[in-house]
């Protein structure tokens, strides 16, 4: 702003004194800039900043969101479309089918859909074959409750499927709701090589049933506030992380050889809980090599109720909380 005023003043001076040297004023402006270190880039129009961001590699583009509030959401701007749910389904399918070519040629890493009702869907892919689907809801109304059965593709392939889309290795699902869980299930059934699955912040989700594939190794379920029951059938799972209310856990497999299990139940039980249930839960994870529990869980459920921890655990850790 200071720069602008100074320039305006200079123009006026010019009119009064034509002999005045423009270059001196420029040097003066340069000096002022050097001293105050004015943030000039943030004064550029959104269009230009978005254009610069669109030329960056994915991680650099996301890093620009941490610069200041001015930059916070700019990296998403190139991705935004408006429309109906049907438009979004089409746009996201075509984005997924083409993403490898698009990504290579134009650094397009995602699409954000703004629905007329204020809901937003952000689909983005990072270069390490990670797909992030975030269904944020603008409305804070009481979410409709739902049960969700998520069956991962268990087919093994003798040859690679035609589209590289299906090579996605990590899937991050945020804020899946009653309205879109079936669409998500149908999308997920296309991913044959999914190794990691993260499900977070699903409001209204009461029961979740996950049937994993032989290559699903990582599962994370975080912060689903209404979750009352969690059923897992994934015999090759080696890493499992859970944070949120304590649901009724059931594991359907003969031998679950977890290498690393982390549980943070500080929010307390999400259903009518009996102390015996905790023994059932511990039995389910009895082969875990490394078990991490939040301190609260240990003190309330294990220490006070004399539950049994299994002796084959190599590493047992107590922590205050699990961060993402």
């Amino acid at each position: 702003m200071g720069k602008k005023n100074k320039k305006k003043k200079k123009t006026q001076d010019n009119k009064l004194d034509p002999a005045c040297n423009t270059r001196n004023t420029k040097n003066l402006i340069a000096e002022v800039n050097m001293n105050t270190k004015e943030d000039l880039v943030s004064q550029l129009p959104d269009d230009i900043l978005c254009c610069i961001i669109s030329l960056l590699p994915f991680k650099s583009a996301v890093k620009t969101s941490f610069l200041s509030t001015r930059w916070r959401d700019l990296w998403k701007t190139n991705l935004v479309r408006n429309g109906t749910k049907e438009d979004a389904d089409i746009a996201i399918s075509s984005f997924l089918i083409d993403f490898n070519d698009l990504y290579r040629s134009r650094n397009i890493w995602g699409v954000q859909f703004n629905f007329h009702n204020g809901n937003v869907l952000l689909a983005s892919v990072s270069p390490n074959r990670k797909l992030h689907l975030d269904f944020s809801t603008a409305k804070q109304e009481f979410p409709r409750q739902f049960g969700w059965q998520l069956d991962l593709n268990c087919q093994t392939f003798m040859y690679l499927p035609p589209s590289s889309t299906f090579l996605i290795k990590t899937l991050h699902l945020v804020s899946v709701s009653y309205h879109n869980n079936e669409a998500v299930s149908s999308l997920v059934s296309n991913f044959h090589f999914l190794e990691s699955l993260i499900i977070a912040k699903c409001n209204g989700l009461r029961s979740l049933r996950i049937a994993g594939s032989p290559i699903l190794g990582n599962l994370t379920v975080f912060d689903c506030p209404q979750l009352k029951s969690l059923h897992i059938k994934a015999s090759w799972l080696h890493t499992f992380r859970y944070r949120g209310v304590l649901p009724w856990f059931s594991f359907e497999f003969r031998e679950l050889r977890l290498h690393d299990a982390m549980f943070d139940f500080r929010k307390g039980p999400g259903y009518r809980f009996a102390n015996h249930d905790f023994n059932v839960f511990l039995h389910g994870i009895r082969y875990a090599k490394k078990l991490t529990l939040c301190r609260w869980t240990f003190e309330v459920h294990i220490y006070n109720n004399s539950c049994n921890l299994y002796s084959n655990i190599d590493l047992f850790m107590l922590i205050d909380s699990i961060d993402v």
Partner: peptide, 27 residues
């Protein structure tokens, strides 16, 4: 010019970008 700026900041950490642009974080 946009590709010149992109080229200059790609691969930089957020702090390095702030330094390059003279941006002061207001978070």
């Amino acid at each position: 010019c946009t590709s010149a700026v992109a080229e200059a900041i790609k691969g930089k950490s957020t702090d390095e970008m702030r330094e390059f642009f003279d941006i002061k974080s207001d978070f």
